[in-house]
Simulated scan of single mutants.
Amino acid sequence: MTHNPDFLIVYGTLRPPFDNTFSQYLRQRGRCVGDGSFAGQVFDMGSYPGAIYQENCPTRVCGTVFDISNQKAAILTYLDYYEGVGDQFEKPTEYIRSVVPVHFNDIVENCWVYLYNLPIDDKPLIESGDYAQHISVPFKWSA
């Protein structure tokens, strides 16, 4: 298992079509390589999603995969701040950065992902596994 992969999968507000400062930063510095998914579930936290990885789960979390190898340290440091990950944040943090196997472009590759790190007992499950679809903002590349 690659413990420091060159890929990142995003499934929420960092994913196109969202256009916040942090998603713009990722798109400017990373290279989108396509849609991907990993085993697990995604939940509606209100104005953003939270996903959990479950190795043998029959459901998938859908996202967009970026090659971040060109500026990996800078990208991850910046996004850690956005996701509230790191020693400077009160524990337990809402998210953790982890490595999971992701299926994209007909391969399985380890990718960084921000996973939800708090109880999900009262959170609504997004059955499609796709947050953008769930909030009716379909993903479309601009021409």
Rank of each mutant, 00 (worst) to 15 (best):
K91S: 13
H3Q: 15
S47K: 10
C32L: 00
K140D: 00
D87Y: 09
R27F: 08
E127Q: 14
G36E: 06
N117C: 02
Y25W: 09
W141R: 13
I9Q: 03
F89H: 07
V85K: 07
R97L: 06
L14G: 05
D87N: 14
N70M: 10
N105E: 08
Q28W: 06
S23R: 14
Y81N: 08
P58Y: 09
S69D: 10
T77P: 01
G63S: 10
Y116R: 00
A132W: 11
I75A: 04
L79D: 06
S128I: 07
H134A: 11
N117M: 02
E90P: 04
A73G: 06
S128E: 13
G40E: 05
V108P: 00
C32Y: 11
G30L: 13
T77H: 05
I135K: 11
D130H: 04
W112C: 05
K72T: 05
D67S: 02
W141L: 13
D44H: 14
P124E: 00
G84S: 10
T77I: 00
K123P: 07
G36M: 07
S69Q: 10
F38H: 08
V108F: 06
P5R: 00
P138T: 10
N110F: 13
S23A: 15
K140V: 11
Q54A: 00
D121K: 10
T59G: 03
T13N: 12
K91I: 05
